[in-house]
């Protein structure tokens, strides 16, 4: 299973690095969003009730980090759909002794790819003057949450790709993730949201991750049990979703 996973991950990353058009958009989008939010919206920290010590750049960094993680997984899902559409996935299904290794392989490549995006994003944020209140353990916690969210994104997209086996399913992979992201406290803390969006954000699982991540970078970890509990539940649920997707693909032949 491990050899299948490593072999597939190596192939995915090779394809990725040889095609800038596949590699650059997932890298550029978070950077552009980060610039737009941190540069254009920093005045929001003056809104009465905005209580975050490390500044607006750090506040928005956590969201963009999680966004890059989720979309890193989704972009990897595009690759899976492409493999099915062009028939390469059938070759994989035929040759892999342990087919679950395929999901693991796609997950490994998605994680590696996102790790690079995270490094670039963090470097840009630090150069841009981001304040970090948390210590090393806090930051480890923040990146761990983002990493788990990357896997959740990949498992979701993987399940969709294996059910539809067509690049046409791309919007279906993206749109729910986009909604999940933007129906959370993106620009201001949860307490400052009003109306229906407050109600939705309160029950949005991403809100727990976002609040915990912001707590980590601010040096005041908060809602850790809820955040890691929700993350674990999401991984289990979407692992099942991906595995049943693989089973469907196997049945489709």
């Amino acid at each position: 299973m491990i050899s299948v996973a490593l072999g597939l991950a190596y192939r995915q990353l090779t394809v990725l690095f040889k095609n800038p058009s596949l590699f650059l958009p997932p890298m550029l989008f978070p950077l552009m969003n980060f610039m737009s939010f941190a540069g254009g919206l920093s005045r929001l920290r003056h809104v009465p009730g905005f209580d975050f010590h490390s500044g607006y750049t750090a506040f928005t960094f956590v969201f963009v980090l999680l966004q890059s993680a989720a979309f890193g997984g989704v972009f990897a899902g595009f690759g899976i759909a492409r493999d099915f559409e062009y028939g390469f996935a059938r070759r994989l299904l035929v040759s892999a002794p342990q087919r679950s290794g395929l999901i693991l392989g796609y997950a490994l490549s998605a994680l590696t790819r996102w790790a690079m995006i995270a490094i670039v994003l963090t470097t840009v944020a630090l150069i841009g003057g981001m304040q970090v209140g948390g210590n090393g353990i806090d930051l480890f916690g923040m990146y761990a949450l983002a990493m788990i969210f990357n896997i959740v994104g990949l498992l979701w997209a993987c399940g969709v790709a294996m059910r539809f086996r067509s690049i046409q399913s791309g919007p279906l992979m993206q749109t729910p993730v986009f909604l999940l992201l933007f129906l959370s406290p993106v620009y201001v803390p949860l307490s400052l949201l009003t109306g229906w969006i407050h109600g939705v954000a309160r029950v949005n699982p991403l809100t727990f991750l976002l609040e915990a991540g912001r707590g980590f970078i601010d040096g005041h970890p908060t809602q850790l049990a809820a955040a890691f509990g929700v993350s674990a539940a999401l991984v289990v649920f979407f692992a099942f979703w991906a595995r049943t997707g693989l089973a469907r693909a196997e049945r489709a032949g």
Binding site: R43, V47, F178, Y187
Partner: peptide
């Protein structure tokens, strides 16, 4: 998607960024 996406963003951001009107 081009028809609905801006509408979704309009709905989400007009609420998510409502606090900005207090500036």
């Amino acid at each position: 998607p081009p028809l609905t996406f801006p509408l979704i963003l309009m709905a989400v951001n007009s609420n998510g960024l409502k606090a900005a009107t207090h500036l």
